[in-house]
């Protein structure tokens, strides 16, 4: 019989510990979180829809009304981040307040506020997209890909 391989033993110890951790670790309350994400996310979207309907009722074309609504929602997201309400909302709603456009605005404004103390160039300027950057990069990549696909389909 050969001596047990220490690497193998370590691996077994790690697996055993992982099982123990999974047993002890509290599970996130998925149902409750989903419920609040649904409610808050839904309310944000309802608000946006109400703004759009209002703009259209005042005689704006649909595309113009959509763009204006996005602008207003981004402004509101930034405003509520600035006065310290959006992060409280995020604690309860999770994805419900991250996914809408207001969440995107929150990520940018929060970074800007955070790094203001390092100055406007190396702080705000350099770090403003530290959280939202990936969204922009992959947004651009996808839009280019879709553009390419469109060229092929239309020719």
């Amino acid at each position: 019989m050969t001596a047990p391989d220490p690497k193998q033993l370590k691996k077994i110890a790690i697996e055993e510990y992982e099982t123990l951790v999974q047993r002890v670790k509290p599970k996130p309350p998925v149902l409750k979180n989903s419920f609040w994400a649904f409610v808050v996310g839904g309310l944000i979207c309802m608000l946006a829809q109400a703004i759009q309907n209002y703009l259209m009722a005042r005689g704006m074309a649909k595309t113009d009304a959509s763009s204006s609504t996005s602008v207003i929602m981004i402004f509101l997201g930034a405003l509520f981040t600035g006065i310290g309400i959006y992060n409280e909302l995020g604690k309860i709603a999770g994805a419900g307040s991250i996914v809408p456009i207001t969440g995107f605005s929150n990520a940018i404004v929060a970074s800007a506020m955070e790094f203001k103390r390092e100055g406007y160039i190396f702080g705000v300027g350099a770090r403003i997209f530290s959280v939202a950057g990936p969204t922009l990069v992959f947004g651009f990549v996808i839009s280019v890909l879709i553009g390419v696909i469109k060229v092929f389909i239309s020719t």
């Binding site: 670790k25 509290p26 981040t81 990520a107 929060a110 955070e114 790094f115 959280v131």
Partner: peptide
Amino acid sequence: ERQFRFPTEQGVQKAPS
């Protein structure tokens, strides 16, 4: 928080652990 995690005003949900 700002060194290890997210900007403080960002709305993120924390895990119970």
